[in-house]
């Protein structure tokens, strides 16, 4: 088992933890954090493949991770804004109680 396999297994475990959190938690903020964890698992994959790949001097994995982190930050800001806006209507962040699209 080479080092790359270890990193890929860790990334898969991180993804599964994030997926379980996004599926199981009922607090909308924690579901968003589960999605962030899944994005982070993808970032770890990019960096590990860049480090152990055939052409690390091209820096492709690093570039992709930088852009991915940027998109994740924008997503977190807009997602938490949406949660605040929904909370103002429904007075809850519990996903089980958000059953109506009408404000």
């Amino acid at each position: 088992m080479n080092p790359l396999t270890g990193y890929l297994l860790l990334s898969a475990l991180l993804f599964s933890i994030g997926l379980a959190g996004a599926l199981l938690r009922r607090n909308a903020i924690l579901v968003l954090i589960g999605i962030e964890l899944m994005l982070n698992a993808a970032n770890l994959n990019f960096i590990a493949f860049w480090r152990y790949g055939p052409n690390p001097s091209a820096l492709t994995g690093v570039m992709f991770t930088i852009f991915s982190i940027t998109v994740a930050a924008a997503e977190a800001a807009v997602g938490l804004g949406i949660i605040l806006a929904v909370y103002r209507h429904t007075k809850t962040t519990d996903l089980n109680e958000m059953t109506s699209l009408k404000g």
Binding site: I29, L32, I33, E36, N40, N43, I47, W50, R51, G61, V62, T65, I66, I69, T70, A72, A73, A76, A77, L80
Partner: peptide, 20 residues
Amino acid sequence: AQFVGFTQIIVYVGAVAILA
């Protein structure tokens, strides 16, 4: 990947966690 590591700390630990 030093740059990505420190970006991770600044963006996630510094911004996203505080925002949450």
